[in-house]
Write a protein that binds this DNA or RNA. Structure first.
Lengths: 368, 368
DNA sequence: ACAGGAAATGAATCGACGC
DNA sequence: TGCGTCGATTCATTTCCTG
């Protein structure tokens, strides 16, 4: 009993809290395979990081800038590798990670992700609607940041709410370039002096799209570089649980206050459009069993070019082919595959109707 | 004298030619510090598994060429490091490099660039106006590719034609995200069978912006993965010298023919469609980049009293005036302001057409 | 010849489930 | 774990085809 409690306690996730400390140490203290999504906005101040994990450079013969850069890059790489490994241990097998960065660090982060065994799904460009201009006119306006979305491993069944994102985009498939304004105005948090509380606060619109797209309500979202808690705030609003890790007390304080004032959206607002894939499977044979189609009844192909007869066991028979609605459709069309539900039609009262309509009727009954 | 000749010969650059062979070996055979700009479109190391079909059951023509196959990340990294080192040796101290890639390879390329001592100036996102959708609804539409622009070393005085780019963008500072269509239609080169000559031909509009922005007339531009020679074609049109390196004979042949038919600013006649939609701002420079108007082409005023020439950066030059289409129109008319879009016309097939027609064409494409 | 609809196509790491 | 079956899934543009 005591052991049980202890075990439970040790494995219990500190949900909806902000943990203080170094993110690598804190992550390593949490139970493995317990988190659904990680969103990370790591530091990219390469030069300042040079002294954190500086490798032994005693036998270096070149003391030029190139080596300096390399030592700095090496330190950053080690830091990146360490926190990505700790993060990967935390992820459930079907979990995923998002990392955001700029050209200063994102290439090293992306390579490290691949080296650690993550499987990149997309890189997504946040195209800033109102970026700061390049005042010196020596380069292009730095108008975007890059996010990398990766699953824990190749072949993992990551979460992707395709239909919800498509709806967000007015019915068109969501692209890898997102046009969103930067965080300013009332959303930008201020400290007691009225200065911005954090130099790189991310807009909630960005996290909204990330979390709607790659988590479900009730999922656990961890942010190892919590800052002022944008990830937590949006997670809370969307009915997800969050875990924040932040080293700086000043940021934690701002985030605590922010989250205390954040409310979850109504349950209805959290409902998103789902894909057909999520709906229960209905065997075609059920339509015959229930008498919605009679054995011997003739079905017509969508394009009107083919026909086939329904058999009592829920298979079809056409010219020289028999099998499932899918197999017969594919064979007649000479196609590698075919969705028989949308391919075949039947006649009722002089009208030609797809058989998928009957499946929808059954599904509607099942939902009651 | 003989020595002189020999030295000269050894150091002479094979300008405006396509060299056959492995790019690393060829680059190492060329004199160091002799090239102003390198544009590289290396293999992306796509790791495709099975076939992919569209919802209509047609098969996607995948990039499965042998030149894109690497045994491991380590092998790809070695290759990347080697060609980047050879390229860097070729660059003049104030030279620069552009590399294009996708999430499959660009992070490794970016890290290698930094490791080799290059200094990243920007990452630039090519946002495709008409990308291929994600057919299975499992990820985001892969709607962009990433280019990295880097100088040979930190502190180098790289070329950046700020004003020219600003003019191309109708007076607004050029951003790090560029919206341009993919290469298809008449620009897409075909082989003798009528199939695409190269699976990944890049659009000339992309190279136009790169070369206008980061080279000057007379500069030497090298492309170690020349393919069908888009870099060379645009360089020639813009009055830059090019050197191409290509391993595959089939590609070299196509490129040779293409370049033989390329003239300074000589482009195919455009097709004008009159489809009319709504409002996004279209910079006049885009008409030039996209080849709808060619630099040097003459525009006529609506009333027939004035004329002006198009420049490569999207400005006009008339009698004693130069500037935007609006500025030049206003100056020539002695008016406080002028709508250049309705004021200026161009000639096609003997007919005089307002340039606004071209803007409408672009807007029709943009109205996504 | 022209208009309108159908077909083709582009750097793609593009299932889930049951037996 | 491997294999067979079910069945979900596309946007912009150009080129071809038919009337």
């Amino acid at each position: 009993m005591t052991t049980m409690t202890k075990t439970k306690s040790a494995n219990a996730l500190p949900l909806n809290t902000i943990l203080a400390g170094d993110c690598i140490e804190v992550m390593n203290s949490l139970p493995e395979a317990s988190v659904d999504l990680i969103f990370a906005d790591p530091p990219y101040n390469l030069q300042l990081r040079g002294d954190l994990h500086r490798p032994d450079n005693s036998k270096v013969d070149a003391v030029d800038d190139a080596w300096d850069q390399f030592s700095s890059f090496a330190a950053y790489d080690r830091f990146t590798q360490d926190w990505l490994a700790a993060a990967r241990r935390l992820l459930k097998p079907n979990g995923a990670i998002w990392v955001i960065g700029s050209y200063h660090n994102i290439f090293r982060v992306g390579a490290a992700l691949q080296n650690e065994g993550y499987w990149i799904l997309n890189d997504v460009v946040w195209r800033k609607a109102n970026p700061m201009p390049n005042f010196r006119g020596k380069r292009f306006t730095n108008a975007h940041e890059t996010m990398i979305w990766a699953s824990k491993a190749e072949g993992a069944k990551y979460t992707f709410n395709y239909e919800a994102l498509k709806s967000l985009n007015e019915g068109i498939q969501m692209r890898s370039d997102w046009v969103l304004p930067i965080c300013n105005g009332g959303e930008r948090l201020k400290d007691d002096n009225g200065d911005k509380a954090h130099p790189t606060q991310k807009p909630e619109s960005l996290l909204h799209r990330v979390l709607v797209g790659s988590t479900n309500p009730g999922d656990v979202v961890l942010d190892p570089f919590f800052g002022t808690g944008t990830t937590g705030a949006v997670a809370k609003m969307l009915g997800r649980d969050y875990i924040g890790i932040e080293r700086e007390e000043a940021y934690r304080k701002v985030a605590e206050k922010r989250l205390a004032n954040t409310r979850k959206y109504d349950r209805e607002a959290l409902m998103v459009s789902t894909s057909k894939r999520a709906e229960p499977r209905v065997p075609f044979g059920q339509l015959v069993e229930r008498g919605m189609l009679r054995p011997g009844e003739e079905l017509l192909s969508m394009n009107g070019r083919h026909k086939a007869k329904v058999r009592a066991d829920g298979t079809l028979i056409g010219d020289d082919v028999k099998g499932s609605i899918h197999q017969v459709g594919a064979a007649l069309e000479g196609a590698p595959s075919c969705n028989g539900w949308t391919y075949w039609c039947f006649k009722r009262d002089g009208k030609v109707v797809p058989i998928d309509l009957l499946r929808q009727q059954i599904r509607a009954e099942m939902a009651n």
